[in-house]
Structures are given as C-alpha cells and as structure tokens.
Amino acid sequence: MKRILAILVEDRPGVLTRVSGLFSRRGYNIQNIAVGRTVEPGISRMTVTVEADFVTLEQIVKQLNKLVNVIKVSDLMEEPSVGRELMLVKVKAEPNKRSDIQQVVSAFRAKVIDVSPESMVMEVTGDEGKLNAFILMMQEFGIREIVSTGKVSLLRGSKVTRDIRT
C-alpha cells in the first residue's frame, strides 16, 4: 500500500543522504520525495511517499527514528490529510493548437506560464490522479518535457505535525 510520511529533520548537511541512504540500503522504495522548510528555523520537512506493507512501514518509521538528525516521523495516512504536487509541462504548441490547449488548461485549472512560437509551458497543481489525467490530455499535443516537485502533504483540520517526538 502507498503511505505518505512526513519527516521532520534537522537542517544539517548530509541529512537528505542519511534518509535516502537508509531507504535504499534497507530495500525500501521511495516513490516520491519533497524537501522544504518549516515554520521553525533549522528544521526541514521531508514528505516521502513509499510503497510498503504494514510490517515494512513500521520498520521504516523505526529505522528513520534512529537517525540522530531525524526529529519526528509521522504517517500522514493514519488521519485525513491533503496532498498536492506541482508540475510544469512543456508541450508543442503550433498556433492552430493553442486554443485546444487553452481549453484543457482551464478545465484543469492549470496556468499557462510561458508561450513561445512553438511551445507553451503550463503549471498545474493537484493530486496524483489529476496530474496523470493532465499528462494524458497533453500527450495529444506532444509533451516536450515535464518536471514536478514531489508531493507535499498536511493533516486536515487544526492538528499539526510538530517538532516533538511522540
């Protein structure tokens, strides 16, 4: 099953290597990873999507907790959460196709952020399903390049993932 982990880490050199190295050496599969800042200075947050059964997930969480620079690990699927990924897509866009592209863009509430004589760049945010559907639609026009941020997630409601170990 797919799980999303929020990992609060000390913002120190090498910490990303420690976390990703742990995943690869113990044979856990990272599907997606995003790293960014938090409200607390010196603390970063990683959002990692993994495919793991329950026993493996428990091991992953315990092994992560053993890393000295890891402050807290939370499983965001234990409670309702919201997740988004941001993707930029560059497609071929001959003048006669532009309005078709525009239609798809507005249907997905995406944004055109660059236009050139032969191509357009779109920005789209959403969950995996939405982004996949967007890619499918854009394939028709010819995708030149895709880049995405990796998924970031937060718990719904007022609860937060804090910098304290449970």
Binding site: P13, G14, T17, R18, G21, R25, L67, V68
Partner: peptide, 16 residues
C-alpha cells in the same frame, strides 16, 4: 569518510 561510514556508524560528524 562520513559518506562511506554512514551505513556502519550510529552517527557521524564532519566538523566544519
């Protein structure tokens, strides 16, 4: 050496 020993130390430090 901090990279090399990451999987075989409990923790390691590069003092900068």
């Amino acid at each position: 050496i901090t990279g090399i020993t990451m999987p075989i130390t409990k923790h390691n430090y590069l003092v900068k």
